[in-house]
Design a binder for these strands. Structure first.
Lengths: 200, 200, 200, 200
DNA sequence: TATTAATCGAGACGGTACGTCAAGTCTTCTA
DNA sequence: TAGAAGACTTGACGTACCGTCTCGATTAATA
C-alpha cells in the first residue's frame, strides 16, 4: 500500500465525491477556455457542473484558486517529443503540435487568461511556468538530440533556440491573430537552422 | 479649421472639459497597468480621476470600450526604427527597445490584459494588432534595410524574421518571466543571422 | 419653506423613490407580523416588495436595522386616550383597544419578535420602549384624569396602575395564549379599582 | 425497573452517552439564554458542547425541536409557594421570586425567545404554557389560601388576580426594561389588595 | 468470543441568506 | 449640454448555517 493510498484510506469523514471534483474542473476548463477570464465565475462553474456553489468553495478557496487549478490541470498533459531521426522533421512536428495545442485545445485558449492572471498572482505565475515548461521541454529535448547527432552546432544554446522557435509561433498565433501552416513552419525551421545572414 | 474642430465649435451646450478626458485616460492606464484587467473598473477609474462615473460613461459606452481606448492610446507611440548602418546593431537596439517597452512602460504591462480581452472582443483585437504592429513595423523596416544593404539574404522573409525576433523576446519576458540582457540579445541576433545548423 | 423641505430640495443626486421606501416597509411589516422574526429576511423583503436587495441595503444597514425601522413604524400610531367622563369606562375602552391592537394589528403580532430582538440590541430596546410607551401613555392620561376627578385616590401611582392594567392584559393574551372578553375586562377594572382585600 | 429503564436496557447497539445528552442541553441553554434565539445554531451548540453535529441531530430533529427541549427543561423547576400565614407577605415573596427568575436565571432570559418561537410553533406554545404555568400556579395557590383565611374577598377571581400580579411584574421588567424593588412590590400588592378607587 | 447494531466524530453535499461590490441605466440639481 | 451625486436593477462575491448523507471507528448486549 502506497503512503498516499494509506493516507487516503485514513481520511476521516465522508470522502469527496470524485464526480463532483471532475465536474467542477471540467466546467471550469470549459468556461475559461471559451469565455475567457471573466467568464470563470464560481456561480457559473457550479451551475455548469450541476453542483452547489458550496462544493466549489469547499475545494477552492476562491475564484483565483480555482483558476490556478484549471491552469495546473491544463499543464499536466506533457506531449512526447517527436524523434524522427532528423532535427528538421522533429522541429516541424513540434511546430505543428504547438499550433494544434494553441488553437485546438482548451489549454491553448486559456493562455491569454493565464498570462493576465499571472501578472497579479504568484501562484498562477508558477502554474504558467509549469505550463510553458510542458511545451518547451520537448523542444529542448529535440534540440539536444540534434546537437548530439551533429545536425546542430555544438555550441548551440538549446534554451534560446527553443524560446525562439516557440516564441515565433506563439507570437504569430496569439498576438497577431495569424495562421501557421506547413509552409511557414518550414520557413521558420529553415531560418533557425540556416540563419538569415548572407553567405559570402 | 478641421471638420472635427468645426463640429466641436458647433456643439450646443457646455463643451466637454478636456482635463476630464485626460484624467480618465490617465487613471485607466494606471489601473490597467498596475492592477491588470480586473482592476479596471469604471468605479475605480472615476474615483482615481476625481471625476463622476457619469463623466466616464459619457465618453465610453462601457468598461470594454474604455479598455479599448486605453489600448489604442498605448499603441499610439511609434518608436523610430534605429538606423546605425549595421543590421546587427539595429537589431540589438530593437531588442533593447522592446525589452524596455515591455518591462518599463505602462503599455507593456498592459499586454497580458490586452491579449485576454482580445480573445472576446473584435474591437480590442484590432487595437491589439495595431499595438503589436507599432512594435513590429520598425523591425520590418530594419530588416528590409539589411536586405537592401546585402547583409541579409535577398530571399529573407522579413515578416517571418520580424515575428521570430519579437516573439522570442516576448515569450521569454512575458511567459517565462525571464530576463533579457545584452548578452542574450547578441546570442539571439547571432542565431537569427547565422543559424543553428552545423557547417559542413 | 420649512428647513426640512429646503434640506430635501438641496439633497444632491437622484432622490429616493418613495414607492420603494413604502414597499420595503410594507413587505417587512407583513413578513414580520405573519412569519415572526426568522421570516424577516432581506431576501424575502426585497422579493415581496418587488425591489432589489440593494435597495433595501441602501436604506437599512442590515437585517436588524430594518427590523428596528419596522418596530418604530409600528410604534408611530398613537391612539387617542378615551375620555368618557368615567375612569371605569375609559379603562374598559383602553383594555379593548389594547386587546385589538395585540391580536388584530400587525404591530401586536410583532411584539414577541420585538421582545426577542430587544434582548440583544439596544436600538431595538429603544424602539420597544417607544412602542410600549405609545400604549401606556393614554392609560396614564386616563388614570390622571380619574385622579383629578376624584374617582381614584389622590395618592394613586399612575405609573404602577398603568403597568398593572396593561401587564395583565398582555400577559394573558401573549403568554398564556388566552382571550380577553368584555366580562374579564370588567373584572380586571373592578379588581384594580376596588381591590381584592376583604372589607372589615 | 421503570419502563424507560427496561426499554433502555433492551436497546441493541451502543447506548447513547448521557454526557453528550447533558452537554448538548447545557450548551443550548447557555447559548439561548445569552445570545437569544438567533444564537441557538446547531453548529454553535455542537461546538460549545464539544460534540459532533451528528450527535445533536440524532437527538433532535431540528433547531426548533432542540429549542423546545430547552424550554421544557427550563419549565421543569417548579418553585414552592411561600406560606408565611399572611397573603400580603406571600405575595411579596412571589414577586421577588419572579423578579429573580426573570432577571437572574437562564430560564427567564429565555422568555423572549420562547415567546417569539411560540408564535410559529404549536409545540413551543405548549412548552411556553407549561413554563408560565410553573410560575403562576404557586401564585394561584397563595391567593387561594388568602381567600380561605378570609384575607381576600370570597368572590376573588384567583386566576385573574394571579395574572394581574404576574403580568404587572413581567410587563415592567421585560417590556419596559425597568426594575422591580421591594418598595414597588409593596405598592403593587397594596394596589391589588386595596384597590385604587377613592373611598367615599 | 465473535456478531450485530447503534453511537460518535468528521466531513461532503445541496440549499438559503447574509452583507459587499461593481456594472450599466436612470434621474435630479448646478453650473 | 456637461458634470456631480446618487438611486436603481442585476449578478457575482465569499461566508455561515441548515438539514441530509456517508464514512470509519467505538462500544455494549447478544448469539
Amino acid at each position: 500500500m502506497t503512503p498516499a493510498a494509506a493516507e487516503a484510506a485514513r481520511a476521516p469523514g465522508r470522502p469527496r465525491d470524485p464526480h463532483v471534483d471532475q465536474a467542477i474542473l471540467d466546467a471550469a476548463v470549459g468556461l475559461l477556455s471559451d469565455g475567457g477570464i471573466e467568464a470563470l465565475s464560481v456561480e457559473a462553474v457550479a451551475c455548469r457542473a450541476g453542483v452547489s456553489r458550496t462544493s466549489v468553495y469547499r475545494r477552492y478557496a476562491d475564484r483565483i484558486d480555482l483558476m490556478e487549478a484549471v491552469f495546473n490541470a491544463a499543464a499536466a498533459a506533457k506531449p512526447e517529443p517527436p524523434d524522427t531521426g532528423s532535427v528538421r522533421t522533429d522541429m516541424l512536428q513540434l511546430v505543428e503540435q504547438l499550433r494544434a495545442a494553441l488553437l485546438e485545445s482548451d489549454a491553448g485558449s486559456m493562455l491569454p487568461a493565464m498570462l493576465s492572471a499571472a501578472r497579479e498572482n504568484p501562484e498562477v505565475r508558477v502554474a504558467l511556468e509549469r505550463f510553458t515548461g510542458s511545451r518547451r521541454s520537448p523542444t529542448v529535448e529535440v534540440i539536444r538530440r540534434g546537437i548530439e547527432r551533429g545536425e546542430l552546432r555544438a555550441d548551440t544554446d538549446a534554451d534560446l533556440l527553443a524560446d525562439t522557435l516557440v516564441g515565433s509561433v506563439i507570437y504569430r498565433l496569439l498576438m497577431r491573430n495569424g495562421t501557421f501552416g506547413a509552409r511557414r513552419a518550414e520557413q521558420l525551421v529553415d531560418l533557425l537552422v540556416g540563419g538569415a545572414g548572407a553567405r559570402p
